[in-house]
Design a binder for these strands. Structure first.
Length: 152
DNA sequence: GCCAACGTTGGC
DNA sequence: GCCAACGTTGGC
């Protein structure tokens, strides 16, 4: 059982969208490190902090969990998609994804607030220059975030 | 829109 | 294998 923080642009897939859909395919990851986390390390039932990025108020917006193993991201084959990758073929897909089940929406734990909590200071998403859209979260960090989400 | 930081590409 | 140039991310 592991924990992850996964960034999504709410204009594309918000926590509300994910809750309405039940589960969402985490398409569009085009970074090898993030892909490898999904392909090699994620397990069914892993906990996910659903993070809104590239928006007015970036931060953790909900809780989710991994609900599939990794499989090819179909958008890499779609020439009309923003995520099309001409190097990928059906036989040798480059990009993988998992499905994520939204569990609940939480209060927004903003990036600015996250930076004020010493117990979160080591979270990878807070490190200078960090841009990775999927990062592992330690058990202690997971528990600290959940505790903060339960506070007003 | 700006820009710092990082990742990828491609010439050599 | 090096590294400069370019592209992308993402907060502000």
């Amino acid at each position: 059982m592991a924990y992850w923080l996964m960034k999504s642009e709410p204009d594309e897939v918000s926590i509300d969208d994910a809750l309405a859909a039940g589960s969402v395919p985490w398409f569009g990851v085009r970074n090898y490190q993030a892909r490898n986390f999904m392909r090699d390390q994620m397990q069914l039932g892993d906990g996910v902090l659903f993070y809104h990025s590239s928006c007015a108020e970036p931060g953790i917006a909900g809780i989710a969990e991994v609900c599939s193993s990794a499989y090819p991201d179909h958008t890499q084959f779609d020439a009309a998609s923003h995520y099309y990758d001409p190097k990928s073929t059906q036989e040798t897909p480059c990009w993988m994804m998992v499905d994520v089940q939204a569990i609940r929406k939480t209060r927004l734990l903003s990036l600015a607030e996250m930076r004020t909590h010493a117990e979160l200071a080591d979270m990878l998403v807070l490190q200078k220059g960090s841009r990775l859209s999927i990062t592992p979260v330690s058990t202690a960090e997971w528990q600290a975030v959940l505790a903060l989400l339960d506070q007003p």
